[in-house]
Design a protein around this nucleic acid. Structure first.
Length: 985
RNA sequence: GUGGGCGUGCCGGAGUGGUCAAACGGGACAGACUCAAGAUCUGUUGGCUCAGUGCCUACCUAGGUUCGAAUCCUAGCGCCCACACCA
């Protein structure tokens, strides 16, 4: 019957969209006594092909949240804009022989229309477009400010050049050696003067502040950490012909194993190292390298050539040959590395290939294996004794070998244990009777030997040592060594003590101290590898062949060797980053011009701030893919404002990632023509409380926007350190075939067609209910039909609504739903929220509900299905917009878990009875009547009429103690709590 | 190689120590309504057993911890993503 009432969803949606807009309910306003909430989805590039369902998915996730927050009384800022500079528009313009501006603005108009049709709660009055001079003026302003502070600089650098785009690409734009837009185009290397932003000045902060971003997905944080790539090591100075060359290493402990140096084949000063005899060979080598494409370089064998020069080892003074290699990264560290073939696999291969010396300086301790076994044996013995006597000392450390008492390296293992004071003598007896020597030395005034003991036994030349510490518990219940009550080192927190089983024996250990007692993970594993001569040993160990440092462990040796270098002024501790400076020059038209001019007498001159923006010319012809600015005299020719002479304008434009690195700030004051933004406003709305976007920006945009925010903070414009508190990656919507939605696959789903057929609300509901929003999902016609069915059911019910009463079951369900849905939305588990709503509606249909309570349900539904909810709301006589109403509050008093339990047993009973009925019917009998026997106190849970309705058979319920009950087979004897007895006839 | 994630019933996907043979949706099957189809409603959907509430086998595989594991630990297999000659 529902079919006749075909609903014109498109009309209904348009109606409410218009009303929302004219009432301006989604305008963001600063209010003093309400909390603000800034929610943002990454602004899109307005592609010419328009918006597909994948975009809708993305925006719906934000929209649900924005609506939820608004209904919860927050001042919500939820803006939208367009990332409208960029290559595709320019390419399209070339093709269509028109101007990218026209093309872009058409696309924006189209995109906006489509977005509005989704019913998103944006404040459109703050819309921004990055290609507008009012906007990119501030890109240029930021550039000038960076230039002033030395953060924008020019450098000749090898850059990635795509022949198809005819432009330089940033590292992020190179995918497997190919252009990110042209999978078939190899990227070539060219050397050009380029503008860079010194993001590396912020590397340390960008790295360390990641720890504060606990609202970000772990994966993104990990990716950024990895990308920034902080590593601490040592910078070692090698002298070559009296000139200093610094080399970065994280393995200073292998310094004595250096048998050659390798400088990057891309190093700018490379030729100064090459001796005349080697010059020809080197040049041939370099020529050969250049003929190899970027991609193949990665796959290439390590290759190199001798430069002819020798360096002086900073500690031994030995002569070390300097090589040129293809495997050294030119712009990491100093572009030169030390070759330690014995302990680095790459160096090893290189040395084998060119017959260079391999000098081993690290050895593993052969005795360690045996040592471990021995120690474990002793430890087991100790534990057995403890278990037998009901003692449980706490193991806080040990199983480590170390240098003892300043003596030269000697095999030694120790175990630190914490014991109770009253066990002191007990353990003394044990150790002594097991052949341990009490090793407490007199004369150490710092220690009270009645509360500390040190038992050592020598077995096969190895010292096994138990350090016994008497401890007490402090106020917090933590364990503290008597002697060092105030020192953290000997305080063990009680929550770090865990009980584990070790070879069947119980033992308390301190988690924090990292004692590895898991049988699968003992020390043997760590020393399994040994130096075979077939490959390098890259692990740590004990130093040999290292002059005065022999016998030290790697970790200690690193410190000592660095200190030794430092004393001789030939090295120092250093922190290196993988992060490179941000190359922002693009040899393209459609971007913000870099505000710089070149004057023959003044050099590089920044444009005056008052002359901003440097506008892109509008009446310019596009004929080829090359930047037309270069040949556009009116743009290029300019007078130097310093000296008045003729000068040239920079024709490169800025990377579009500049635009997006601060756009979120502009939303807070998008119409300001005097300033980039009013600090007061930015500080009010920022930081973004909730930012939504794709994972692909993890090491691009999401680093840049942090960088620029920090920079603007340092200019004094902002009072916070990070742009976004919480970041969320939405999943990707695939086509019905499970493949990425793309025109070439022909699997693109358009919102328009979906809206017409099922309504946008059904689509929204479907998108968020398939899975949690961070998962990739496939579009499914069946799936949306399911959602549409639900929407229709709700509409039918509400449109024909007859006032009812909310009974206790209904009240319980409704209030529990309110509670759950609120929590689920807050935690972005929209799928579960929708399920709760569905379940709740099922109960509404069964039980009936009061008008006011139904409205509460509609409110919750409205964040997912705003249009139909408005329609229902108005039909139910709701005031104003449901979208502007207050989120319902759960009345905890009405939530009664007992009811739910009762319901569960009711359902179970229904199931049981059905089972019996089935059996009866399978025997050819027809069930006429069902008798149910329940415990007297459960009588209220089983309603005869309801049961009868569910079963389709007339049903009678008796209490077991009812003397008048009809029970010919004595089934009432089977009754248990929550389980009724059943008789069918 | 490094870092991160994941492996659940026919499918999508909930579920992180007992209340789990596993939410919810989809599909399939059966029934009701209908001349019929669609829509809608009801039920079934691991196996066995059966006047019931019982048993067995199950959450990639193998072990382990636990009174108890889809859930925790270890190892293995498989899949996905990102970075990748970073010294």
């Amino acid at each position: 019957m529902a079919r006749e009432k075909v609903i014109d969803f498109s009309a209904l949606e348009k109606k409410w969209q218009r009303k929302w807009e004219s009432a301006g309910i989604f305008r963001a306003r600063e209010k003093k006594n309400a909390k603000k909430f800034y929610i943002l989805e990454m602004y899109p590039y307005p592609s010419g092909s328009g918006l597909h369902m994948g975009h809708a998915f993305n925006y719906t996730i934000g929209d649900v949240y924005a609506r939820f927050k608004k209904m919860n009384g927050f001042c919500v800022l939820h803006p939208m804009g367009y990332d409208s500079f960029g290559l595709p528009a320019e390419n399209a313009a070339v093709k269509a022989k028109s101007h990218p501006k026209k093309f872009t603005e058409d696309a924006i108009r189209n995109f906006m229309k489509q977005q509005k049709a989704l019913g998103l709660s944006y404040d459109w009055s703050r819309m921004i477009e990055s290609h507008k001079p009012e906007y990119y003026k501030w890109d240029q302003w930021i550039f000038l400010k960076m230039f002033e502070r030395g953060l924008a600089y020019r450098k000749k650098a090898p850059v990635n050049y795509c022949g198809k785009c005819k432009t330089v690409l940033a590292n992020e734009q190179v995918v497997n050696g190919k252009c990110w837009r042209h999978e078939d185009s190899d990227v070539e290397i060219r050397h050009l003067e380029q503008w860079f932003l010194k993001i590396t000045d912020y590397a340390d902060e960008l790295n360390s502040y990641l720890d504060r971003l606990d609202g970000w997905p772990e994966t993104i944080r990990a990716m950024q950490k990895n990308w920034i790539g902080k590593s601490s090591g040592t910078e070692v100075d090698f002298f070559i012909d009296g000139k200093k060359w610094s080399v970065f290493t994280t393995r200073a402990d292998t310094l004595f194993g250096v048998t050659f140096l390798v400088v990057s084949a891309q190093h700018p000063d490379l030729m100064s190292l090459v001796t005349p005899e080697q010059k020809n060979k080197v040049e041939m080598f370099l020529k050969k390298l250049r003929s190899v494409s970027e991609e193949d370089i990665v796959k290439l064998d390590k290759e190199g050539i001798f430069s002819g020069s020798y360096a002086e080892h900073p500690l031994t003074g030995e002569k070390i040959p300097v090589w040129i290699g293809n495997f050294v990264v030119a712009d990491y560290g100093s572009g030169m590395v030390m070759g330690v073939p014995a302990h680095d696999q790459r160096d090893f291969e290189f040395a084998k290939k060119y017959n260079l010396e391999i000098k081993q300086v690290i050895t593993i301790d052969e005795k360690r294996n045996k040592l471990s076994e021995l120690l474990e044996e002793e430890f087991e013995k100790f534990l057995r004794h403890a278990n037998k006597n009901n003692k449980k000392p706490i193991i806080v450390g040990g199983f480590a070998s170390r240098l003892i008492y300043g003596k030269p390296y000697r095999n030694h293992k120790d175990i630190d244990i914490f014991i109770d004071a009253k066990d002191f003598d007990f353990w003394k007896e044990y150790f002594v009777s097991n052949g341990y020597q009490d090793y407490r030395e007199e004369g150490d005034v710092k220690r009270d030997y009645s509360k500390y003991a040190l038992y050592i036994k020598e077995i096969d030349g190895v010292d096994v040592e138990f350090d016994v510490w008497v401890v007490k518990t402090n106020k917090k219940g933590n364990f503290v060594d008597f002697e060092f009550v105030n020192e953290r080192e000997t305080t063990i927190k009680k929550e770090h003590i865990i009980e584990i089983k070790y070879r069947g024996l119980l033992v308390n250990v301190s988690k924090e101290r990292g004692l590895l007692l898991d049988p699968n993970q003992n020390l043997k594993r760590a020393v399994d590898n040994c130096f075979t001569g077939i490959s390098a040993y890259e692990g740590y160990g004990i130093l040999i062949n290292s002059e005065g440092f022999d016998g030290l462990k790697s970790g200690e040796a690193r410190e000592h060797i660095t200190n030794a270098l430092e004393m001789r002024k030939k090295g120092r501790k250093k922190i290196a980053f993988k992060l490179r400076d941000w190359l922002i020059s693009r040899q393209r038209f459609w971007g913000a011009p870099i505000p710089v001019i070149y004057c023959d007498s003044c050099g590089v001159v920044p444009v005056n701030e008052k002359d901003l923006p440097v506008k892109l010319p509008e009446n310019i012809k596009f004929s080829s893919a090359e930047n037309p600015l270069k040949k556009y005299e009116k743009f290029v020719r300019v007078k130097c404002h310093k000296c008045g002479k003729d000068a040239r304008r920079e024709t490169d434009t800025m990377d579009t990632f500049i635009d997006s690195s601060w756009y979120f700030l502009r939303y807070t004051d998008s119409k300001n023509s005097k300033k980039i933004f009013e600090s007061r406003k930015a500080n009010y709305w920022m930081p973004i409380d909730f930012y939504i976007g794709g994972k692909e920006h993890a090491t691009g945009h999401l680093i840049y926007f942090r960088f620029v925010t920090k920079f603007l903070r340092d200019l004094g414009l902002l009072k916070f350190d990070e742009p976004a508190l919480r970041f969320f990656n939405q999943g990707m919507l695939h086509g019905p075939d499970g493949r990425k939605m793309s025109k070439s696959y022909g699997n693109v789903i358009l919102p328009e067609s979906v809206s017409k057929k099922y309504g946008m609300d059904s689509a929204r509901l479907f998108l968020v209910s398939v899975a949690s929003p961070d998962k990739d999902i496939d579009w499914s016609d069946k799936g949306i039909e399911g959602s549409a069915r639900f929407v229709l059911r709700v509409m039918n019910y509400c449109f024909g609504f007859k006032d009812g009463k909310t009974n206790t079951r209904m009240a319980h369900k409704l209030n529990k739903t309110i509670k759950n849905v609120s929590d689920y939305i807050e935690g972005l588990r929209y799928n579960l929220a929708v399920i709760s709503l569905r379940e709740c509606f099922g109960v509404i249909e069964e039980e009936g509900i009061s008008r006011e309570d139904l409205k509460k349900f509609v409110k919750m539904l409205s964040v997912f299905a705003p249009h139909v909810s408005e329609e229902i709301w108005s039909k139910l006589g709701g005031k104003g917009f449901v979208s502007a109403s207050a989120w319902p509050e759960a009345d905890e008093k009405k939530i009664d878990e007992k009811l739910e339990k009762a319901e569960r047993s009711f359902e179970k009973a229904v199931e049981d009875i059905r089972n019996v009925l089935r059996i009866v019917e399978s025997r050819g009998k027809k069930a006429g009547k069902v008798y149910v026997y329940v415990l007297p106190n459960e009588l209220g849970n089983y309603d005869s009429i309801k049961l009868g309705e569910r079963l389709g058979v007339s049903t009678k319920v008796y209490a077991v103690n009812d003397s008048k009950k009809y029970d010919p087979e004595g089934k009432s004897k089977k009754v248990k709590p929550g389980r009724p007895g059943i008789y069918v006839e």
